[in-house]
Design a protein around this nucleic acid. Structure first.
Lengths: 248, 248
DNA sequence: CCGCTTTGTCCGCGTTTCGTAAGGATTCGA
DNA sequence: TCGAATCCTTACGAAACGCGGACAAAGCGG
């Protein structure tokens, strides 16, 4: 857990830093550069739009409070013509603010004062996501289930399952981590990507998922409830072994 | 009842405590230990680097003011070869200081004098973020028992045991620390995560646990009472040995 | 622009859990 | 053997927990 091989796949990625406070900008720039990223800098919203069009960065780090147009508005406008990931910086940690940020189309969110280390970690994690999506994962089977992550298809016993996006993500997560209990908070972070949120969201999605993958949803045999701890995807040990091959 | 839930997934994580003031170190060590962490200690920067390399702790608690090289510098150097989370301790609460600390790569920050309880909370929260999808704990056997902590499953002689959350946590604790006496207060802190509380809580939970794991609960052979001292989980040395293999 | 689906939130209900208290049993020392 | 300290046992009830149903907002495709 402690030793992250400097991800060569992530090196030399181009990052556009939008920040009007010179001090903050300097710190962020230095850290991102020493993490191996190429950093461009602008200080207001209009330059941002221009720069994104011209330079096509791999990610935008966007201050929420900007001279001229607001960060959320910038983000919204970016979204009209590009899918470039946006990491939003904000002074406030209020939930409302966070919601606003994500609503405007940001991919992640960081509250000031932030640790530059955290910034780098987040940037890496976002980029990794987008990289991972482009590198196809090999399909694998576990128990009666077969997951083709890159095609976003799952089947049970040969019959394809019709899952919604969230249901698919959740099932995929469990298939990749069988026989392990996850509490709702962890699921919220790992599958939803939220740092905080209503835990009943998980309860409900689990229920909906069960209705589609379990014979009798009220007596789950795969996605079981572990009282007071969370949920676990149960699979025979033998199956789990053979499945683990596929994961690696 | 009043305290945070004991987090079995975080238990037994290795923490390196870097602090030159023996008084502070002692308090911190005791609290971290009774929260279920394994604590190593060093008192200066060079030892820190060495120890991190050698022991690979899961987290470093680092005093900012150290003899020899300064804490921020130590942190910076750590960052050149590892991403181990760092929690920085400092005497000053000045914002500038905080910024410095975070810039050097610390994950969080705690100003002295701090409450040991706060320390434990911070440590937990940092680990929780980083642990998440990390490697699940390997299952192991001890005597007739088999514990799979990440699946939250235990069995005795092959038969799965149906335990409640608390019962599981308690048994897991004893399985990880066999042939060792624990008084009720320690159990309350380590398993329940409480600083204060009614000790009869343990008595009752032990009794409930015994009913499920002992052939004859009133003549316990595994979870035995040590009069005037606490409880101990008895297992043949030979079994304990073989069990230790599994742990490694 | 309008339906349909997805998805998050809320509420009420039944179940399980777990702390607490109180009385009985056991151990230990004198 | 007696008394005090310690531990066991039992029972109760509040609180926690998970579940299903329903609803509304947002997203999506036509």
């Amino acid at each position: 857990m402690t030793q992250p091989p400097p991800d060569s796949a992530l090196r030399d990625r181009r990052i556009l830093l939008v920040e009007d406070d010179p001090t903050v900008a300097e710190v962020a720039r230095n850290y991102l550069r020493s993490a191996g990223f190429l950093v461009d800098e602008v200080t207001d919203g209009f330059q941002t739009i221009d720069s994104v069009t011209a330079v096509r960065p791999d990610l935008v780090v966007l201050d929420r409070k900007l001279p001229g147009i607001d960060g959320t508005e910038v983000c919204r406008r970016l979204r009209t013509f590009t899918d470039v990931p946006v990491l939003m910086l904000t002074a406030l940690s209020a939930t409302e603010d966070r919601i606003d940020g994500l609503e405007s189309g940001a991919d992640d969110y960081l509250t000031k004062p932030f640790s530059p280390r955290e910034l780098v970690l987040r940037v890496r994690s976002i980029l990794k996501r987008t990289v991972d999506e482009s590198t196809p994962e090999a399909p694998f089977a576990l128990g009666p289930f077969r997951l083709d992550a890159s095609a976003r298809k799952v089947s049970r016993g040969g019959d394809p399952l019709e899952l919604s996006a969230r249901e698919f993500d959740l099932l995929a997560f469990f298939l990749k981590h069988p026989n392990q209990v996850f509490d709702r908070e962890t699921l919220l972070r790992s599958v939803w990507g939220w740092e905080v949120g209503d835990l009943s969201t998980i309860t409900v999605t689990v229920r909906r998922l069960r209705e589609k993958i379990e014979g009798d949803p009220s007596h789950a045999t795969f996605l079981t409830t572990v009282w007071g701890a969370g949920y676990r995807f149960d699979v025979e040990e033998a199956d789990a072994e053979s499945a683990a091959e596929g994961v690696r």
